[in-house]
């Protein structure tokens, strides 16, 4: 890896550490994890599974809503703030390729989001093994982590695109919040509302729902645990009754990854040739 790439990544890592954003992510994940442990869910047997599997299941259910928000608010301002503060003017007039800058920022922010999550998962696994003496559900753990990583990448890509296209920091932040609200609203209730209001064909509504990376990741996570769960919602129920858990996992991992990569490429195309000041 060239000096320019390393420099870009180190500069952004410094920025992430200074802003304590990584610490915030760790705190959010830890609080969520601790919350589900402390409220006694590990003992719950209502839905058929207990222990770490149950905690992870509940944690992942919350994470599919929290991860996009963290990713968008953390990544959305990255480029536009650099532009406003004159950081891009200083560094991109040096022998630093724009691709290196964009990739460096994206990878560091992705790592800053995923790293604390991996740490929390590992701590939960260790607590299960040595605290409770239970076996660690490696399969579910790995699957959940892979889906969370894909979901994170999806919104890191979208956040980078927002940041590259936004003309001001305020606009980038507003758009990030709007995008998060839209992706959460489109999980079920906004779609069902649209279905009832405009009498859209059911296939259209479900197709639209499956375009939402949050919905795909959520279905893959939950269906991996229990395909018959009522909490999957109408769209989830429709999908789980038609696709196998493996197909849903592939959809939940591939589609968000594809959306994130496509958004990143759109941003890269603009950033590579456009104005950076």
């Amino acid at each position: 890896m060239s000096a320019a790439w390393i420099t870009c990544m180190r500069l952004d890592l410094g920025e992430v550490l200074r802003s304590r954003w990584m610490l915030l992510c760790l705190m959010v994940y830890s609080v969520l994890g601790a919350l589900f442990v402390l409220v006694g869910m590990r003992e719950s047997n209502v839905l058929g599974f207990t222990g770490l599997g149950r905690v992870l299941f509940s944690l992942c259910h919350a994470l599919v809503l929290v991860l996009p928000l963290l990713a968008l608010t953390g990544v959305g301002p990255a480029i536009v703030r650099g532009r406003e503060e004159g950081v891009l003017e200083l560094w991109l007039s040096q022998p630093v390729p724009r691709t290196a800058w964009l990739a460096g920022v994206s990878l560091v922010r992705f790592g800053a989001l995923l790293g604390p999550l991996v740490l929390v998962f590992v701590l939960l696994a260790l607590w299960t093994r040595f605290g409770l003496g239970d076996a660690i559900p490696w399969g579910f753990l790995g699957r959940a982590l892979a889906l969370c990583a894909c979901l994170l990448w999806s919104f890191v890509g979208l956040g980078i695109a927002l940041s590259v296209y936004a003309t001001s920091l305020a606009r980038a932040t507003t758009l990030a919040l709007l995008l998060w609200a839209l992706s959460v609203a489109l999980i079920d209730f906004a779609l069902i509302g649209a279905l009832l209001r405009w009498r859209l064909p059911v296939e259209w509504v479900l197709g639209l729902a499956l375009l939402n990376p949050v919905q795909d990741a959520r279905m893959a996570l939950l269906a991996g645990a229990e395909p018959e769960l009522a909490i999957l919602g109408p769209v989830g129920f429709f999908a789980t009754t038609r696709f196998s858990p493996s197909a849903l996992f592939a959809l939940g991992a591939l589609w968000p990854g594809l959306v994130g990569t496509a958004a990143w490429l759109v941003a890269w195309r603009r950033f590579r040739r456009g104005d950076v000041v």
């Binding site: 000096a3 420099t7 500069l11 503060e85 004159g86 007039s93 040096q94 630093v96």
Partner: peptide
């Protein structure tokens, strides 16, 4: 090519990091 902007960045990055990064990219 070297460029000195009219106004220096208004960033929180410490001087040490700027100098080290500059030295690295400029050899």
């Amino acid at each position: 090519r070297v460029y000195v902007p009219q106004t220096a960045p208004q960033s929180n990055v410490p001087v040490r990091e700027v100098v080290q990064a500059f030295a690295r990219v400029r050899g």
